[in-house]
Structure formats: structure tokens, C-alpha cells
């Protein structure tokens, strides 16, 4: 089998550069296999996160040939041959070392989301009630959507914008059949939902194929519109009482 050259970013917060590594290719190989080869034979201190190697844990996010992707899911035969393959860390988060970056901001955002509060314990729930939410609960927290979202990546609005991952989580809570927390203020003001201009890059990179924009963000925007931007509904509610 021929060798393919990998250009892998080596460096840390202070800077770094791409280093070339020749890697022998086996059938069915994914990018993460190549990095393991580099670690095992060429550079034992190459930092890379991974766990499941099966696109189930969301640890191995990086940018392969400039596209945010899970390394364990990116087959070499899906990439153009004859050219080196570049592997860089996610750009939106500060680099710690090599391909590993500091994603702790995401965990801080998560803490601020108003938690689940059940209406009633042990109530019957039907499949039709959970179908929609189960899609959101597929999220493996790879943060690729956060990485690609231009509001974070280009405009650095980390202080006021929760990002697509957390819109998915919020949608999962808002549409949960048994949850009664009211998150509309949070959605409109704290989450920065309005900063999303529904340009769908998050949906394009989501390895779990969650329709982030269509099924989570837009419905949330509609809910916010119900609450804050719909005079008709407001009049209706005044006349007939809140439902």
C-alpha cells in the first residue's frame, strides 16, 4: 500500500506549524487511524482526543482538509488522493496542544441553561411525544457545530451566544413532553438565538445528522415569535385567556 502524507498541526497556544508525516494506507482506513499510526511510530507525544472510534462519543473533532469533521468517521478514500491531507484543530476554540483544544466554554454555557423540571413524575408518554426530542438527544457533543458556526468562529460572540449545540439542547428541553420550565426569556435574551442567521453550517457538519437549523433553531425562533413578536396572538390571548 502506498504512503499518504499527512500535514498535521503541531504546536500550542503560542503557535505552531504543520508537520508532514508519511503514513501507510490500509483499506477502510479513517483519519484517526492515521493519527494513531503517527502516535504509535513517529511522534508519541502527538496530542489528540478520541474515545470510541465509532462516531459515538464526539471526542475526535478536528478540521480535515479545512472541514470540521470527526476524525474517526472520515474515511481516507472519501478525500482527494494524491494531495497531502491537512489535519488542524478546531479553530473556534483555543489550542491546548496539537489537535487538542480547550472546549470548556461549552460546559460553562451548558450550566446556564434552565434545567429540566417535570410536570408530574411517572406520567405516560407516547412515542409520538418523544420522536422529535429523541433526534436532539442523539447529540454526542462533538462541538463541530459550535466550531463551524460563524457567529462563534468569525464574530467571537461567545459572551452572548450559546451556539447550535445548545439550541439543540434547549429545543430538547422545550419540546420535552413532561417539562414545564419556561425558557422563553432565556431564549430571547440570554441564549443569543437572534444572532443565528439560520445559514445552516451547523447542520452541514453535524455527524449525527441532526437537522439543527430546521428542527431545533427555527422552531425555537417561532416559539420566541409567538411569545414576543405576535400581536395577533397577544390580542387573542387577552380575549380568550392563555392556553
Amino acid at each position: 500500500m502506498p504512503d499518504v502524507t499527512f500535514k498535521v498541526f503541531r504546536g500550542d497556544a503560542k503557535g505552531g506549524q504543520a508537520i508532514d508525516y508519511p503514513v501507510p494506507i490500509a483499506p477502510g482506513m479513517v483519519v484517526l487511524d492515521a493519527l494513531h499510526y503517527i502516535q504509535g511510530y513517529l511522534a508519541p507525544d502527538l496530542a489528540v482526543r478520541w474515545n470510541c472510534k465509532a462516531a459515538k462519543c464526539g471526542s475526535c473533532s478536528a478540521e480535515v482538509n479545512g472541514k470540521p469533521a470527526l476524525m474517526c468517521k472520515t474515511r481516507l478514500d472519501s478525500l482527494p488522493t494524491g494531495r497531502p491531507i491537512t489535519v488542524y484543530p478546531m479553530k473556534t476554540f483555543p489550542v491546548i496542544k496539537d489537535l487538542v483544544c480547550d472546549v470548556s466554554w461549552n460546559y460553562d454555557v451548558n450550566k446556564k441553561i434552565p434545567p429540566y423540571r417535570p410536570a408530574k413524575d411517572g406520567r405516560k408518554i407516547y412515542q409520538e411525544d418523544v420522536d422529535r426530542v429523541q433526534e436532539f438527544r442523539k447529540c454526542i457533543e462533538c462541538f463541530l457545530c459550535q466550531d463551524v458556526c460563524h457567529v462563534l468562529r468569525e464574530h467571537e460572540k461567545k459572551a452572548e451566544f450559546a451556539g447550535p449545540r445548545f439550541f439543540v439542547r434547549l429545543a430538547g428541553l422545550e419540546m420535552h413532553p413532561n417539562d414545564i420550565t419556561d425558557r422563553s426569556e432565556f431564549l430571547k435574551n440570554s441564549s443569543g438565538l437572534g444572532l443565528c442567521n439560520i445559514t445552516k453550517c451547523c447542520t452541514e457538519v453535524c455527524p449525527e445528522e441532526i437537522h439543527i437549523t430546521d428542527n431545533a433553531i427555527i422552531p425555537l425562533k417561532e416559539r420566541v415569535a409567538d411569545r414576543f413578536f405576535d400581536p395577533l396572538r397577544w390580542v387573542f390571548a387577552k380575549i380568550f385567556g392563555r392556553k
Binding site: 417535570p118 411517572g122 405516560k124 408518554i125 412515542q127 418523544v130 438527544r137 420535552h176
Partner: peptide, 16 residues
Amino acid sequence: RELEDWGALFDRTPDG
């Protein structure tokens, strides 16, 4: 059941 009360959503039978 406790996991469910904390928000987990398992697949359902026809009678909920």
C-alpha cells in the same frame, strides 16, 4: 423510572 423523571426519554410501547 428515576432516570425518566430526570428527563431521559426511552422508546415507548403503544400504551405509553
